[in-house]
Amino acid sequence: MANFEPKIVGFLCNWCTYAGADLAGTSRIQYPPNIRPIRVMCSGSVDSVYILRALLEGADGVFIGGCHPGDCHYVSGNYKERRRITVLKSILKSLGLDDGRVWIRWVSASEGKRYADSISEMTSHLKRLGPNPVSKYWSL
């Protein structure tokens, strides 16, 4: 397990977190290369099914990056995503599944450091959790 490298699927909002990730890069901030970012137009466009799909296909974690509350480019997408993620986490918990593999963070375009820190934190959290158990089950 020592060399387990978690795979994180990231859904990053074009207007904030994606730019924040860019800034982290151009500022040469070091962070683990475990995230596979997908650029989306708004965190509010990330339906739970996408997240579930990633988890069921064996992603060790899913990271959603959106604008800080109040700063959504489309006014309220992040607020709605916050509810959606709350629902998803509640469903996972009710079914005895780990909801700690889904993270949402608010990261603005100027917060390169916050983005890098978030990915570092999530990577070490997932390393502690170990690989997503779904890959054990062919019948899933």
């Binding site: 509350p69 309220s76 607020y79 709605k80 509810r83 709350t86 700690g100 949402i104 963070r105």
Partner: peptide
């Protein structure tokens, strides 16, 4: 419907994982 609306001041712990 809960998924069509929101409150600004709610669910503060989401986003703080």
């Amino acid at each position: 419907l809960p998924l069509t609306t929101f409150k600004e001041d709610e669910l503060r712990s989401v986003g703080e994982e």
